[in-house]
Amino acid sequence: MNGHTDQPSELFTQQTFDELIHYASTHRLSRVSFWSINRDRPCPSDRQHGWTASFCSCVQQKPYDFSRILSKFQSKIPTTTTTTATTQQTNHQHSTTHRPYNNDIDCSKIPGGYGIFPCKNDQHHFIECSNGIEYILSCPVNTKFDPKSLTCVWE
Rank of each mutant, 00 (worst) to 15 (best):
Y101H: 12
N2V: 13
F73R: 02
D122P: 08
R39T: 04
V141K: 00
P8N: 12
T80H: 14
C129H: 06
Q61W: 03
S45D: 11
P42Q: 10
F66M: 02
L70W: 12
G3K: 08
K62N: 11
Q89K: 03
K120C: 13
I69N: 11
T81W: 04
P63I: 05
R41E: 07
T84I: 02
S25K: 04
S149I: 06
I116K: 05
C119D: 12
P78K: 01
P118K: 10
T26F: 01
Y135A: 09
I136K: 11
N142S: 08
L137A: 06
I77P: 04
T83M: 00
H27T: 07
E134K: 11
N102G: 08
R41G: 10
G115H: 02
R39L: 01
N103D: 15
H94W: 12
T90V: 02
T13N: 12
T151H: 15
Q7G: 07
C56L: 02
I110M: 02
G115P: 05
Q60C: 01
T84W: 00
Q74A: 06
Q15C: 08
S67L: 05
Y101L: 09
C129Q: 10
H125E: 11
F34E: 13
H49Q: 09
L137W: 14
I116L: 15
T81C: 05
T16E: 03
M1H: 03
P140Y: 00
G113V: 07
V59N: 15
